[in-house]
Structures are given as structure tokens and as C-alpha cells.
Design a protein around this nucleic acid. Sequence first.
RNA 1: UGGGUCGGCAAGACGGUCGCGGCAGAAAUGACGAGGAACGUCCGGGCUCCAUAGAGCAAGACGGUGGCUAACAGCCACCCAGGGCAACCUGCGAGAUAGUGCAACAGAAAGUAAACCGCCGCGCAAGCGGUAAGGGUGAAACGGUGGUGUAAGAGACCACCAGCGGGGUGCGUGAGCAUCUCGGCUAUGUAAACCUCGUUUGGAGCAAGGUCAGACAGAAGGCGCAUAGAGCUGCUCGCUCUAGUCUUCGGGUAGACCGCUUGAGGGUGUCGGCAACGGCAUUCCUAGAUAGAUGACCGUCACCUGGAAACAGGGACAAAACCCGGCGUAUCAGCCGGCCCAUCCA
RNA 2: GCCUCCAUAGCCCAAUGGCAGAGGCAGACGACUUAAAAUCGUCAAAGUGUGGGUUCGAGUCCCACUGGAGGCA
Length: 116
Amino acid sequence: MLARENRLLSADDFRSTMKQGRKVGSDHIVIYLKRDEASPHARFGFVVAKTVGGAVQRNLVKRRLRAMSRQALQTLEIKADVVVRALPGAASLEWSKLQSEFESGFAAAIKKSARA
RNA sequence: UGGGUCGGCAAGACGGUCGCGGCAGAAAUGACGAGGAACGUCCGGGCUCCAUAGAGCAAGACGGUGGCUAACAGCCACCCAGGGCAACCUGCGAGAUAGUGCAACAGAAAGUAAACCGCCGCGCAAGCGGUAAGGGUGAAACGGUGGUGUAAGAGACCACCAGCGGGGUGCGUGAGCAUCUCGGCUAUGUAAACCUCGUUUGGAGCAAGGUCAGACAGAAGGCGCAUAGAGCUGCUCGCUCUAGUCUUCGGGUAGACCGCUUGAGGGUGUCGGCAACGGCAUUCCUAGAUAGAUGACCGUCACCUGGAAACAGGGACAAAACCCGGCGUAUCAGCCGGCCCAUCCA
RNA sequence: GCCUCCAUAGCCCAAUGGCAGAGGCAGACGACUUAAAAUCGUCAAAGUGUGGGUUCGAGUCCCACUGGAGGCA
């Protein structure tokens, strides 16, 4: 779990990040990243729809994504809002595969947003 | 030993590192942190507000008997019916002489009367009369079998059996069971069709409800000012509140705290009861989030699968959101016990 | 949290408890046409989401599930 200041809390935050942020997709996840140097912290949020699975599967996916986000936060230098959307099939994926997907997608999103 | 049937247990254990949630603490830190179904939301309650929870109708639910319970559509014991060699299982199991409806097709006829082919009598014949044994239809045909009887037949009469109704005796709290006796010789099925009888249900739901803080902009229409609106789901009455109130459109806020986890609570012992369950004593406190807390990495042991071994792989279903009691449904691999049947041995 | 509705042929849908199922679009074949469209005719395609029950008989009535759609606070 992330600390409270590193989480997206309101529906408006989610909406603006997904609308204005840079979007990078892969087989099982989609990452939206919006740079915001004015905000005090980098913030993460997760969207895991019912199509992913039942409550148990969705919680597992959310927790794994949170653990990955926490690791990414330690090496992150920029301030940004990030939303990770999980797609069907993410629940049956192994940890290492999901992690590699997340890391490559996250790096691509940072590169893309730096160009903008 | 094999097969069956019923019930119960458990939901791998211990530890390390990095993190999360609320709690305690000044801090360091400490203990705690999803389930047997947390699920589906099918019932019943507690709790909160509406009147203190009221009356009648309507509407719904339930339906063998006795008990348990806060309550129930649940549970226990028993009765009856059906299935099974048996253990055991299944049953929305009141009422069809209160009334209404329906019973397609076939068939003469589908519920209280009648007669298609027959059979018998009369008649040359057409036909008329008697009859309901036999045939045929159907899911179902107005008791069954055997006899007496007759022109042929028929509960017309008789015996036994089945079934219905009235009465009695014994046992049982009771549903009922056993048995005796009398009566018409017989009355179809369907109430998970309307209905009748009995019992029972006021409504809304923790986004209930309350405290604090904060934001905004009003407009149109309906009904009313002493009978009108709302609370109050369909109606009538009754009660309370208000001079306004409701609907639609538009605008604004969606923050904090309480409710919020100690409860019809769990464990153990003992007593009462066939049991469900209850009494008493003692002991324990065990999640309270709000985009919503359990994840990642690793070690040891146990289980299963493959393998000679090293070793490799695997572990279901499914996650609290005010709280309980049930029901229903999902569940890999397991463990334990009662009972029944078959076979073998003594 | 509280409710409501739906499931029938590839698609949209109808049905009084009664021979088990109507219609339209789409499909196949034929006619018309030089050919095609349109039109006309013919044909095929379902066993009514699943499992039980009531009934002589169930798409229909009852119960439990499964999947889907919607509403209110």
C-alpha cells in the first residue's frame, strides 16, 4: 500500500489524468501519466474493472500494482499523476511478467511525457 | 473386504526482510488485522426515524402435530403419504358435501345424467322398449372379486375386500394408531386455478438518523388559505405538523465527527431435556476501511503428484462495509465417526 | 442498501395449462430478368437459459440457480 499523499483520491483526479495524460498500452495494462511539477508528490491510482474478475482477483491485481508503484516511486525524480488500468487477463498473470510489463510501460510513459 | 447412507472436523503451520490499516503511546515501539461460506440477498429480528406504532378494508406470506427461539418460511422430535432389500431419503402435508371455474384430443358420455357397438324382448321389416355384464376411447368412466338372480342384466340381493360418513372403547399432550359397531352401497381430479378457514405482517432503511463546518440563484406550474397539503406505499378513519406545500427545470455542496463495533457474542465445565435448546459458574475481547487496508521476496516442516534418488511442480471456492439468527449456492486435495446391505472367516 | 424486468430459430419477437410452437428480417431453392435488385412461390432452421416440483399434460404455474438489462436512495 502507498502512503495517503501518494494516492489519487477523487474522481476528478482520475478523470483529468486519463484525459490529459500520456497513454501507453500493453497486453494487460494501460498507463496514463500526467506531469504536474507544481504538486508536492507523485500520485498513483488504479482502475480494475469487473471484466478482470471477481473481488478476490481484482484485489490481488490492485495490490500487486501498488507494490510495483511503490518500488517505482523510490527511483522516480519527476512529479506526476499516474493511473493504471488493468485489462482482462491481468489476474492470471504471474508477478514477474506483470512487473516487466509495468516497468517498460512506465518508462515509455515518462519518455513520452518528457517530449511533450 | 466391497458397496451404500447419514453426520462432523478442517480450510496447512512457524519464522525473517521491505510496506499498508485503524488502536495504544510523547516517541521508540507494541499487540491486532477477511470467511465457512465474508457470497446470493431468499426470509426473520435488533437498531434508527416516521405518532406512542393506532383501527378497518384491500394486498401479501405461511399451512400435519408437539416443542425450541428475540423472531422466522429456520431447527428438533413425532405422525401420515410416497420411494428404497435396508440404513435412510423426499413431501407448498388445511379444506374438493361453502361456492365458481377448468378437464384439450379421443370417446356415447368428463360429473350427474346419459347409451356408440353390443345383449335381451316384441315386430316380416323399419323401429319401439329393457339393460349397463362385455367391447372400444382416454391421464381419469360412477367400487373390486365371486355368487344368487333374470328374457338379458344391474348393490336388485348375498359373502369377502377396498373406500366414505356417524358413534363407542383403549393408548398418546397431540397429529394419530389399534379395535368394535351402525349406515346409503359409492360420493372423479385439480386449490403451486379463483376461493374458504386458521395464523400472521404498519412504512422506510446506517446513503437510517444526529452534531459541526461550508457553498449557491432562482424560475415556472399545481392545490390551498380554514380546509388544504404533507408525514402516511392502495383506500377509509384517526393522529401530528404547517400557513404554506408539492412537482418540474436550473444552481450549489458531497468535508469532519458520532452512529461503529461488547454482542440474542465465543470457549470450557456442570445441570435439565430423546433432541433442537435452556439454566448456572468461570474465562476471553478477536477487523472497522472510505478509490476502500493482507502484497513482494525468502527459509524450515507437513500433505499431494511425478521420480530409484537428487529434485521439480501443486494447494479449491471465495473477500467484511451497521450487527445478529437461518436458508440457498460454490468448494481441489483431505481426516474422523455412526448405521445398513452383500461376501468371507471364527 | 432497497427493488423491478427479461431470457423462445442466426437476429427482432408472438403464445388462453392442451396436437409441442405464429410472424417479420436474414438464409437456401425456384419463377420473373440478358444479368441483378425488387416482387411472387416453396423450403429449411427451435424443443423455449439450467435443475427440480405441481398437474393426465408446463414455453405458460411454483421453487432454487445462471446470465443480462434497468431503476431508487
